[in-house]
Design a binder for these strands. Sequence first.
DNA 1: ATGGTAACTGATAATGATTATCATTACCTG
DNA 2: CAGGTAATGATAATCATTATCAGTTACCAT
Lengths: 145, 145
Amino acid sequence: MRSRFMQIAGEALRERGYKLTEPRLAILDYLARHDGHPAIQEIYKGIRKKHPGIGMATVYRTLDLFTSLGLVRVLTLESSRLHYEINWPHAHHHHLICTVCGRVIEFSNCNFQQLAAEIEKAAQFTIEEHTIKAYGKCSQCDRSR
Amino acid sequence: MRSRFMQIAGEALRERGYKLTEPRLAILDYLARHDGHPAIQEIYKGIRKKHPGIGMATVYRTLDLFTSLGLVRVLTLESSRLHYEINWPHAHHHHLICTVCGRVIEFSNCNFQQLAAEIEKAAQFTIEEHTIKAYGKCSQCDRSR
DNA sequence: ATGGTAACTGATAATGATTATCATTACCTG
DNA sequence: CAGGTAATGATAATCATTATCAGTTACCAT
Ligand SMILES: [Mn+2]
Ligand SMILES: [Mn+2]
Ligand SMILES: [Zn+2]
Ligand SMILES: [Zn+2]
């Protein structure tokens, strides 16, 4: 739930001594209310409708902070910019990326536990996070379907 | 095998009407001879020892070309630069990234076939490629091991 | 409520990677 | 050898991100 998450996020900030400021709340709110995987520039434009005056540098700083706190996830779709999304609790998922139209589709059934265990043993590595991206053609772009 | 791959790569270029030029051969050779996942700047420095005169712009162009031909794979480790590696045939693998020291470890046992089939059916998506990255701590950096 | 203070911010400049431009060169084909 | 296209290197331009810094604000303790 949106408001529940805002509450959790607020606590996460307070707990670690971060202040609840207008830019932080605005960006969190924007991400929570908009589906998709916006890049910084899109987030910047989005929040400025209600909060002109917030500067681009602050958007960068804020997203870095949120990422380090685990409140948002970063995602590289094209190489040039980073894309962001709320890291909703209990909504672990990954992405399918259409190489024709760029559409991004989410999927959640990555059964990674077993693979992770194998890898950790074989490589002597402690896995904390993982990301999977699959590239191909979405149903609209694949003529053969 | 290195020379075998150079041969395959040469054919791939010729077939599609690309010329076998000094920069192209030098970059291919550099990547084939050096393990790891160098960024452009490192590749540039590497080839210039034997081939001063090759310009940075050509390195960019060449790596884009190789990527589009499937001869090399691109990899985002930090957000700021792209990293490259030879896409050796029959050597499918993915990467573990240590969040402490940055070391990159490869693993090849990703059994993705089953998952891919599930996803393709559920999402109506045709998967052509996939990448998996796992973040965590390598054995040198994990005190608890 | 007020004041003190470190955290935070917005504007701006600086950086660094990537891309575009363009004149020159290398390579074919005939 | 001439003509034509692909490819290159130098350079400038672009664009995302980061650093700087002076002014502002949230928050805690009075
Ligand atoms: Mn997503
Ligand atoms: Mn690799
Ligand atoms: Zn598509
Ligand atoms: Zn490590």
